[in-house]
């Protein structure tokens, strides 16, 4: 059943959980969401909606994590428990879960979909290991098996892949990390699934604003991050 819609949701929890970082739980009639999917929130003080990865979904409650970056997140951070927000959900295609020893890599706020994915894998008893990286200890968002403070997470992955016999990598974070992940997956000949980020206007696949290039069957094609993604096979992505 297709449950995509424009929802009104009540904020039932909002707290600062790290430096400039908030966690928000939203209760709404949304019935289903998968790790890797996102919601698009209406912020009255900005022209466009703002997309946020779903950091968990359970019993109609969506969790998002956000970093205070601009006007949109400023609006959200000022909301209180009991306030309502307007959002489109669930958007995009999430991760395709495979029954393989999984390495999850989240860099910065890219940890958000990784937490949801970890919860999903745990429920399915799929062995997984979540490593995350943050610029400083104050920015650390808890919930990982291993956390790197300062420096790139990429330098720590070879060892894990070998020691834990990793069979698939899932990742979300800044572009250099994601690109590095696809190179590693090529090096070890294991698949990777990458959650991409790009400035969006419509967030539902209409405006063609958030396009990336993919290589499919030897042909270069356009794909929208919001509708065709945000999760793509690492081996398909053509990096700028």
């Amino acid at each position: 059943m297709n449950t995509k819609a424009n929802f009104k949701g009540e904020i039932i929890y909002i707290e600062k959980i790290a430096k400039d970082t908030c966690k928000m739980d939203i209760s709404s009639p949304l019935k289903q969401a998968n790790a890797g999917q996102f919601i698009s929130i209406y912020c009255p003080n900005t022209t466009l909606r703002r997309p946020f990865s779903i950091a968990n979904f359970e019993n109609h409650i969506i969790t998002i994590l956000f970093k205070l970056k601009g006007e949109g997140t400023k609006y959200l951070s000022n909301l209180k428990k009991g306030d309502y927000i307007d959002f489109l959900a669930p958007l995009g295609n999430g991760f395709t879960i495979e029954n393989k020893k999984s390495l999850l890599v989240g860099a910065g706020i890219g940890i958000a979909p990784m937490i949801f994915l970890k919860n999903t894998l745990n429920k399915k008893n799929i062995e997984n290991y979540l490593i995350t990286g943050f610029k400083s200890n104050e920015e650390n968002i808890k919930g990982s098996d291993e956390t790197i403070i300062g420096g790139s997470v990429l330098y720590h992955l070879d060892k894990i892949i070998k020691n834990k016999n990793i069979e698939i990598i899932y990742s979300c974070g800044p572009m250099p990390v994601l690109k590095g992940i696809t190179e590693l997956s090529k090096k070890y000949n294991i698949p990777s699934q990458i959650a991409m980020e790009k400035v969006m206007a419509c967030s539902i696949g209409v405006c063609r604003g958030c396009i990336i290039k993919l290589m499919k069957n030897g042909k270069v094609i356009n794909a929208s991050v919001c509708k065709d993604g945000p999760v793509f096979k690492g081996s398909d992505i053509i990096w700028d």
């Binding site: 900005t46 022209t47 466009l48 400035v199 969006m200 206007a201 405006c207 063609r208 604003g209 958030c210 396009i211 270069v220 356009n222 700028d240």
Partner: peptide, 23 residues
């Protein structure tokens, strides 16, 4: 048409700039 390369959307106050390029 595949449209333009690079960033295509830029938000401004009370508006937006697009350079989709007729994809």
């Amino acid at each position: 048409r595949l449209g333009n390369e690079g960033d295509r959307i830029f938000e401004v106050q009370n508006g937006m700039i697009n350079r989709i390029g007729l994809e």
